[in-house]
């Protein structure tokens, strides 16, 4: 079944592509088989992350960006992520609303994904879904994160270029995005730049970047700030140019190699820790392990020592 789906996907069949994404999302065994089979055909697409606080206009901006990229005749993939409710497991995925005019364009493939318990702003299977779209033939893959606060920075482990979208009037807005988010942006966007306060936001961002001069000078890339009004297309072409400039920088500076290494490392680490967690969880019911847990409850052994013993017993790892 999987071989057939992959073959159909490589011929450009959208239903097969969509089903492969479902499988990598739902079924770990199948994900493994699919990824191992398509992996040699991946690594070609440019991956661009769009992140920022809720309501900043990420989906609308993306809608307009797709339009510009399509003028260059590139095949576009979009993965748009919205949160899963931790209480019901349900999700309402609404990013597509803003991009629906592209849904009948054969050169655009849009997929909504729910976070399904992942907390870093992405869906659990985002990286695998990207690989499917990459093998399908997308030249550019946009990943729109959930609306983020300060710490959902997983996108940096996934995208080549991270675009951080903010808007004027978030209060002391630069403070609000300072901690983690500021550091991962390759391109800043001030969307809704026709609103009052856009100049102040620009000034603050610029100042912030000046203060971090040392960091970006070492990297060789000062993140540009692009002002946009997504609803009227203002600044969208400039934004795409800024993204392309960054892609060029990545290539010429060799930074892309470093990024890919980092990404592969993070991905392997995540898979390994997932496997270890499952190996241990599967043994939590066993006599020996439950005795240890009981021991901790009774204060006969401390949790650190119990964990060491469990690791030693399950994986043969000495602390």
């Amino acid at each position: 079944m999987i071989d057939d789906l992959i073959e159909r996907m490589l011929r450009g069949d959208r239903r097969a592509t969509a089903r492969l994404i479902t499988l990598v999302e739902n079924d770990e065994e199948k994900a493994r088989e699919i990824i191992s089979k398509i992996f040699p055909r991946t690594g070609r697409a440019r991956i661009i992350g769009i992140t920022g606080p809720p309501g900043a206009g990420k989906s609308t901006l993306l809608d307009k960006l797709i339009k510009v990229v399509r003028e260059e005749d590139q095949v576009v993939g979009v993965i748009a992520i919205d949160p899963t409710s931790p209480f019901t497991g349900g999700a309402l995925l609404g990013d597509r609303i803003r991009m629906q005019r592209h849904s009948t364009d054969p050169g655009v493939f849009i997929r909504s994904m729910a976070t399904r318990g992942s907390l870093g702003g992405l869906a659990k299977a985002t990286n695998d879904a990207i690989k499917v779209l990459d093998a399908y033939g997308c030249d550019v893959i946009f990943v729109e994160t959930v609306g983020v606060g300060q710490i959902e920075v997983d996108i940096v482990k996934t995208a080549d270029t991270v675009v951080l979208v903010t808007v004027p009037g978030l209060g002391d807005d630069v403070q609000a995005i300072k901690a983690g988010l500021m550091e991962i942006a390759d391109v800043f966007v001030i969307n809704k730049a026709d609103k009052e306060g856009a100049d102040a936001t620009y000034f603050e961002l610029n100042l912030m970047l000046d203060l971090e001069k040392e960091r970006w000078e070492k990297r060789g890339w000062r993140p540009p700030i692009v002002e946009t009004v997504a609803t009227t297309m203002k600044g969208i072409r400039e934004l795409w140019d800024a993204i392309k400039d960054h892609q060029k920088f990545l290539k010429e500076s060799g930074e892309i190699e470093r990024k890919r290494r980092f990404r592969a490392e993070e991905e392997i680490k995540a898979i390994v820790s997932g496997k270890i967690a499952r190996a241990i969880e599967s043994r939590l019911g066993e006599e020996e392990v439950s005795n240890l847990i009981r021991g901790v409850v009774k204060r006969e052994i401390d949790p650190y020592s119990a964990a060491d013993l469990i690791l030693e017993k399950t994986l043969g790892v000495k602390p």
């Binding site: 409710s85 019901t88 349900g90 629906q100």
Partner: peptide, 12 residues
């Protein structure tokens, strides 16, 4: 449907 636990896509 979301509250019932389904993954719902709304297209406008």
């Amino acid at each position: 449907l979301r509250d019932a636990g389904f993954e719902v896509i709304y297209t406008g």
